[in-house]
Amino acid sequence: MIAKTAEEGAGFHGPSIDEFFPPVLFELAGIPVTRIHLIQFLAVIGIVLIFGLGTRRMTLVPGRFQSVVEMGLDFVRINVAEDLLGKKDGQRFLPILTTIFFMVLFMNITGIIPFLNIAGTSIIAVPLLLAVISYVTFIYAGIKKSPKGFFKNALFPSGVPPVVYILVTPLEFISTFIIRPVTLTLRLLMNMMVGHLMLVLFFAATQFFLLDLGGWWSALAAGTLAFGFVFTVFEILVAVLQAFVFTILTAVYIQLAVAEEH
């Protein structure tokens, strides 16, 4: 019945990978800018405005806005930086951990904001950039802590018979210096891509059942619309969770780098 109706003029157009390759709107200094790039710019502007206004005139007895900003900053400081790295190293790496958390969060949350409707992290540039920053910070922390022993400890763990290093060292190299940035990138990217595709699927199906087919098919439109709203709430949870996971994994890698043996 659906196929027949579609042949008669109505058609269902589901989401596709082309969603993540929008047409170029204009060029900025020779660099092509798409709709997703504009969303990324807006997310960065939002971060600057919120934290700029929230910390511009801080008072001993904070107002509501300052309290919200401080709660966000304290969340990263207490639950990520100091909890995993301790007081000293936590304060040392707090700026980069805070930046990563809120950049991922704001980029993710654009996926459920009306008229934006796609996450800034749903194309590989941002997840890859943040993964590289996390990776470089991990290497820096390890070399700073143990200039001569960092790579030795990472590739030749203690307590392993020398002959076993033939197998262990290549595996340690791949898992520590290759897999980590790759998994950081792909975990964030895939979650945001799939989330966007699912939301588009639900709401496109709602439009199809309601406007194109009509009649008793409208009952299905109510179902897909309900699923769309439920999944929107779920996407908010995923946006926050992925920001937390990315940040906490970065902190774990730094913690392993600054440990006496890793």
Rank of each mutant, 00 (worst) to 15 (best):
I17M: 15
E19N: 07
G46M: 14
T232S: 13
F20P: 01
I143C: 11
L42N: 10
R57S: 15
I178A: 07
A119M: 04
I236N: 03
L84A: 05
R180Q: 12
L171F: 09
I96G: 11
I179Q: 12
G159P: 01
L28I: 07
G90T: 02
I45Q: 09
P157K: 02
V126H: 07
A154D: 00
I17C: 11
N79E: 11
F75G: 01
H262M: 04
L241Y: 14
Q207C: 07
P157D: 00
P95C: 12
T176C: 12
L42P: 15
T55V: 07
I47Y: 13
Q207K: 13
L28H: 09
N153C: 04
L155D: 01
P32A: 04
L249S: 11
V160E: 00
F151S: 02
I236W: 13
A204E: 15
L211S: 05
M190E: 07
F101Y: 13
A204I: 10
S158I: 00
E7G: 08
L60P: 03
P23S: 11
I31K: 15
M103H: 09
L171E: 03
V76E: 04
D83K: 10
L38F: 11
N79Y: 13
E260S: 10
L49D: 06
T176Q: 09
A125M: 10
A205Y: 02
F21E: 12
E8V: 03
A3D: 12
R77F: 03
L130N: 02
S175T: 13
L197A: 14
L73T: 01
H262F: 09
A204V: 14
T224W: 00
P32M: 05
K148R: 12
Q255E: 15
S16D: 15
F75K: 02
F12Q: 06
V252D: 05
Q66I: 08
G90A: 04
L42K: 10
P32R: 13
V238A: 07
V252T: 11
R77D: 06
I118A: 02
P157G: 02
K87C: 08
L73S: 06
Y135N: 03
G72D: 08
P147R: 09
I118L: 01
V168H: 00
L249Y: 12
S16P: 11
A154E: 04
S122Y: 09
A259L: 06
R180C: 05
K145S: 12
I254E: 01
D18V: 14
T110G: 03
L220H: 05
V168F: 00
V69D: 08
I39D: 05
P161C: 00
K144T: 10
N191L: 15
I50P: 03
A125N: 12
K88P: 02
A141E: 01
G52H: 06
F246M: 06
L97Q: 02
N79W: 14
Q66G: 07
T232I: 10
I254C: 01
M1T: 12
G52Y: 06
L84V: 10
F101M: 03
I178E: 01
L128H: 06
T59C: 03
P62I: 07
M1N: 11
E7F: 13
F227A: 15
M71V: 10
D83E: 14
I31C: 11
L199H: 06
G9V: 00
A125D: 13
H196W: 07
G86N: 08
I179M: 13
I254R: 02
Y165L: 00
E70M: 08
W217K: 00
Q207D: 11
I118R: 00
M192H: 11
F156P: 00
R77Y: 04
W216S: 08
L225E: 10
I39M: 08
N153P: 03
